[in-house]
């Protein structure tokens, strides 16, 4: 029986049936509940994800963007910092696929190299907010009392400052004189983490509050498990799902925020190549040479879209109510 059910749900080696029929079978099997092995929420989500075209499309796009960030030379052999002023604002042609910008830089090469900064910022800001937010959220939710009040109020303070305003103040006052590439990137990441962690903290806290009264937590405590052990092995795995979901969606948002900051001239700064900076540089040329603005804008939109779609797919998978 178990064997059969797995075959049907996997759906790979059965004769093709139409989707609705398959979904019905699936539904019936699940409704019976006790058939099939016990599956964790994560395993369940993975099954759901595998069947989502949104997931595969976005995952493919993300793979391409990550590859660009890691090894830009796979995509182009041109030097993105080689400016040829005599070919300024050239329209797209065989030599320069996306044309050239005001400085005579190859736009295609710069779009490819620009991915690194955006992906770095997106990934590290997401990791940073998730780690800080989860840890503080768990502490607040699990211990309650003074710890909860303290952490929540501190979170409220940061939450009350609008992200863009905070970032502008922070970056314009604490920027050193001659920052290197990673220093610039991590300043932006730091700002996003400082102003982004409270939302994750709140999410984690409410999630922990839901998990805490469960029998298995009480059981673990009765057996004498330390708070660290309880948090790590019992609370965290069961409470982390919403954080994963929100973080993946936020990743796209952070990339967009980075571009916004760079556009305003306070995020990433040259010689760091970034889509936000390219869009900012291309804006004055909008009427004369729209392609200078268009291509980085398309790359930026696609990257943000890919991560948000990915987050969407993950949310659908983790949220039982949406099934």
């Amino acid at each position: 029986m178990t064997e059969t059910s797995r075959h049907v749900t996997d759906g790979e080696d059965v004769a093709p049936t139409d989707d609705s029929q398959r979904a019905m079978v699936d539904e019936t099997l699940r409704a019976e509940g006790d058939i099939g092995e016990a599956r964790s929420l994560t395993q369940d989500a993975w099954r759901q994800l595998r069947r989502s075209p949104l997931f595969w499309v976005s995952a493919a796009m993300i793979t391409v963007f990550v590859l660009m960030a890691v090894a830009p030379s796979l995509f182009t052999s041109l030097d993105p910092a080689k400016g040829d002023l005599s070919r300024s604002r050239e329209t797209p042609n065989a030599a320069a696929w996306f044309g050239r910008d005001l400085q005579g830089y190859d736009i295609f090469a710069r779009c490819i190299y620009g991915a690194r900064a955006s992906i770095l910022v997106g990934v590290f800001a997401t990791l940073g907010t998730s780690v800080v937010g989860s840890v503080t959220g768990m502490l607040a939710g699990y211990f309650g009392g003074l710890a909860d009040t303290l952490i929540s109020r501190i979170g409220d303070i940061f939450f009350a400052i609008p992200l863009l305003l905070g970032a502008i103040v922070f970056l314009s006052s604490f920027r050193g004189d001659d920052p290197g590439y990673f220093q610039v990137v991590f300043q932006v990441v730091l700002v996003l983490v400082v102003f982004g962690w409270p939302s994750i903290m709140r999410l984690m806290r409410s999630s922990v509050l839901q998990i805490k009264p469960n029998d298995y937590v009480s059981a673990a405590r009765a057996l004498g498990a330390s708070p660290v052990r309880i948090l790590r092995s019992h609370v965290f795995p069961n409470a982390v799902a919403p954080v994963i979901v929100v973080s993946t969606i936020n990743l796209g948002v952070y990339i967009a925020v980075e571009a916004t900051l760079s556009f305003l001239g306070i995020g990433l700064i040259p010689p760091t190549i970034s889509w936000g900076v390219m869009v900012s540089d291309g804006l004055p040329l909008l009427r004369a040479s729209p392609h200078v603005l268009l291509f980085p804008a398309v790359f930026l939109s696609l990257a943000v879209l890919a991560f948000i779609m990915f987050g969407d797919a993950v949310r659908d998978a983790f949220d039982p109510k949406s099934r």
Binding site: L102, Q103, I269, P270, D281
Partner: peptide, 26 residues
């Protein structure tokens, strides 16, 4: 000043092969 400083630096870089970077101060 960004556009002309960058262009000037590129001109120096391309001619003399000195690594020239246009550097903004706040």
């Amino acid at each position: 000043h960004k556009a002309w400083t960058e262009a000037t630096c590129n001109s120096i870089k391309n001619t003399l092969e000195i690594d020239c970077v246009a550097t903004p101060l706040v």
